[in-house]
Simulated scan of single mutants.
Amino acid sequence: MPVEMGMWRIDGDSPQRLPSGLLPSEAQLEDFLERDPSLLGEKLLVIARQLRTPHGKLIDLLALDGDGNLHVLELKRDRTPREVVAQILDYGSWVTELGREKIAEIAAEHLDTELEQAFAEVFDAPLPDELNNEIQMTIVATELDDSSERIVTFLREFGVPVNAVFFSYFEDGERRYLGRSWLASGGQPTTARAASKRSKQAEWNGRDWFVTFGDDSTRSWEDARRYGFVSAGGGEWY
C-alpha cells in the first residue's frame, strides 16, 4: 500500500490531527533540498542542479556525501512511476562512470568555490582521493503511489541502489511543517537477494591491510617493510 504520513498536535490529553496541504510546487521542494540537503537525513553537498547529461536530459540535483559518493536526486513531479524510475536509472548509468576530474568540473559550474574547499566546509574533512565508488539514486516525491512502491522495492531486492522518499506538508495556523518518510530504511539494499548479487569479496581477517603507497621515486617500499610504516599524501590535508 502507498506510504502515508500524518501529524498531530497534542492539546492537553487530546491529539488534534493537522490538516495536510500542498506545496506550491515540487520546484519549491527542490529549492529546500538545495539549500539544506540534510532534509534527507544525512549531510550532503549539492554540486549541481538541473545538470544536463550527454543524452539531453536534466538531473534535478546531484550531490556528494561524506565518503565522496554521488547521490542522484530526482523529483517525481507529474510523471508516471514507470517514467520517473526509468529516468533515474538512466541518470545512474551515466553518473556511475563519472571520474574525479569530471565531478570537479561539474561542481565548478555550480559552486562559488573550489570543490575541495566546499567539501571541507560541509564535512570538516578533506575531499577523498577516490570519488564515486558507489552511487545512490533517490526519487523525491510529495506523495508516493503503490505502483512506485512496488517498482522501487523490486529493484532494491536485486541490489539496485535506489530508494524513494516523500515529503508531506502540514499547516497549523501560521506555522508550516515538512514531514519526511523513506520507503526503505538505510541507504543501500540489504536483502538476502541483494547480498547474493554483490561481489564475492572475502571478509576482512582483522590482520592484513591494503594501502596505496605511492610511486618509487618519492617513497621506499623496502624501507616501509623494514621499519613497519605506511606513508601517504604529502599535501596540507595530510
Results as ranks from 00 to 15, higher is better:
residue 5 M to L: 14
residue 6 G to M: 10
residue 8 W to N: 06
residue 8 W to M: 11
residue 9 R to V: 03
residue 10 I to V: 14
residue 10 I to N: 02
residue 10 I to E: 08
residue 11 D to F: 00
residue 11 D to H: 04
residue 13 D to F: 07
residue 20 S to E: 13
residue 22 L to G: 04
residue 24 P to S: 04
residue 27 A to S: 08
residue 28 Q to T: 01
residue 35 R to G: 03
residue 36 D to L: 03
residue 36 D to Q: 12
residue 37 P to G: 03
residue 37 P to N: 02
residue 37 P to T: 05
residue 40 L to A: 02
residue 41 G to W: 02
residue 42 E to I: 06
residue 45 L to T: 09
residue 46 V to H: 04
residue 47 I to K: 13
residue 48 A to P: 00
residue 49 R to W: 03
residue 50 Q to E: 15
residue 50 Q to K: 12
residue 50 Q to D: 14
residue 55 H to E: 11
residue 59 I to D: 11
residue 60 D to I: 09
residue 60 D to G: 11
residue 61 L to Q: 10
residue 61 L to W: 07
residue 63 A to P: 13
residue 63 A to E: 09
residue 65 D to Q: 05
residue 67 D to I: 00
residue 67 D to A: 14
residue 68 G to Y: 08
residue 72 V to A: 15
residue 72 V to C: 13
residue 73 L to E: 09
residue 74 E to Q: 13
residue 74 E to I: 04
residue 79 R to L: 06
residue 91 Y to K: 00
residue 92 G to H: 04
residue 94 W to C: 01
residue 94 W to R: 06
residue 95 V to R: 03
residue 95 V to E: 11
residue 98 L to V: 10
residue 98 L to D: 05
residue 100 R to K: 11
residue 100 R to S: 12
residue 102 K to I: 11
residue 104 A to F: 02
residue 106 I to W: 12
residue 107 A to V: 03
residue 113 T to I: 10
residue 114 E to H: 07
residue 118 A to L: 02
residue 118 A to F: 04
residue 123 F to L: 11
residue 123 F to W: 06
residue 126 P to C: 04
residue 126 P to T: 08
residue 129 D to V: 10
residue 131 L to M: 10
residue 136 Q to K: 10
residue 137 M to T: 06
residue 137 M to Y: 01
residue 141 A to R: 09
residue 141 A to P: 09
residue 143 E to D: 11
residue 147 S to N: 08
residue 147 S to Y: 05
residue 148 S to C: 10
residue 150 R to Q: 15
residue 155 L to C: 05
residue 156 R to Q: 04
residue 156 R to V: 04
residue 156 R to L: 08
residue 156 R to G: 07
residue 156 R to H: 01
residue 157 E to H: 15
residue 158 F to P: 04
residue 158 F to K: 15
residue 160 V to C: 05
residue 161 P to A: 04
residue 165 V to P: 06
residue 166 F to M: 14
residue 166 F to V: 06
residue 166 F to C: 08
residue 167 F to P: 08
residue 168 S to W: 02
residue 168 S to E: 12
residue 171 E to Q: 14
residue 172 D to F: 10
residue 172 D to P: 11
residue 172 D to A: 14
residue 173 G to K: 08
residue 174 E to Q: 13
residue 175 R to P: 00
residue 175 R to K: 14
residue 177 Y to H: 12
residue 177 Y to K: 12
residue 179 G to I: 01
residue 180 R to C: 07
residue 183 L to Q: 07
residue 184 A to W: 06
residue 187 G to Y: 09
residue 187 G to F: 09
residue 188 Q to D: 07
residue 189 P to K: 04
residue 189 P to F: 01
residue 193 R to A: 14
residue 202 A to D: 10
residue 203 E to N: 03
residue 206 G to N: 01
residue 209 W to Q: 05
residue 209 W to M: 12
residue 209 W to I: 15
residue 212 T to K: 13
residue 218 T to G: 00
residue 222 E to T: 11
residue 224 A to L: 00
residue 226 R to I: 00
residue 230 V to I: 15
residue 238 Y to H: 13
residue 238 Y to E: 14
